[in-house]
Design a protein around this nucleic acid. Structure first.
Lengths: 104, 104
DNA sequence: CAAACATATGAATATGTATTCATATGTTAC
DNA sequence: GTAACATATGAATACATATTCATATGTTTG
């Protein structure tokens, strides 16, 4: 982790902003929810038992950070993980969480 | 990312909690700051131009999540990244941030 | 023990933000 | 156009939390 000091201010901002967005349980659930293929807002809301409004608000933030992208198909808008980097990022973090942290 | 739905509630809590902690710029700086070897609280505060109190408060949260660990040596307490998983986690995220997200 | 230094912590505050509610915008079908 | 459906959005609110200040706790040295 000697790249730490090499982190430029902008990169640090993006990094913490990304972490911050993923740090809310509802938002994280939404992101994970649409990580297995595109899903409409209403479907996400139904699956997660969250209000349509809340899901939409969160999706806007996730969209703003390019973590998801949405595509309109007639009445519905289908959201999915923006790209492979985002899904890899999540997989990696999940792996880290699952590994025991108590060793050195 | 089909492991998403396989995420247990506890894992999701830990995951979002970890993201949340890393989502604050000061806290992220502190974590990165002590990722290249153990550093005392006062040294971290000086390097980052943050108050001693603030650094200590943040370190407590990071410690609580096992992201750092501190060791007392006489008057000073030296903090460092808890283990390799945490530093790998950070490296991975930094790599992802540095890679262009605009492709598929 | 007192003094100086280092860290930790509780309370207070100010700021951010997650959630809800009501409503607007957009889309399709009649 | 109107009605029905789907999503987006602004305002309000309730809640979380980052930061500061003052002070307590712990440690070494005289």
């Amino acid at each position: 982790m000697s790249q730490a000091s090499a982190l430029r201010p902008y990169e640090l901002t993006v990094l913490s902003e990304t972490f911050r967005l993923l740090g809310d349980p509802s938002r994280l659930k939404i992101l994970l929810c649409c990580s297995d293929g595109p899903k409409s807002v209403s479907k996400i809301a139904a699956e997660l038992q969250l209000s349509q409004s809340l899901v939409s608000h969160h999706l806007r933030l996730l969209r703003g950070a390019r973590l998801v992208r949405g595509e309109r198909q007639s009445k519905k808008v289908f959201y999915e993980i923006a790209d492979k980097h985002v899904s890899d990022m999540l997989s990696d973090m999940i792996s880290h969480i699952r590994e025991d942290r108590s060793e050195h």
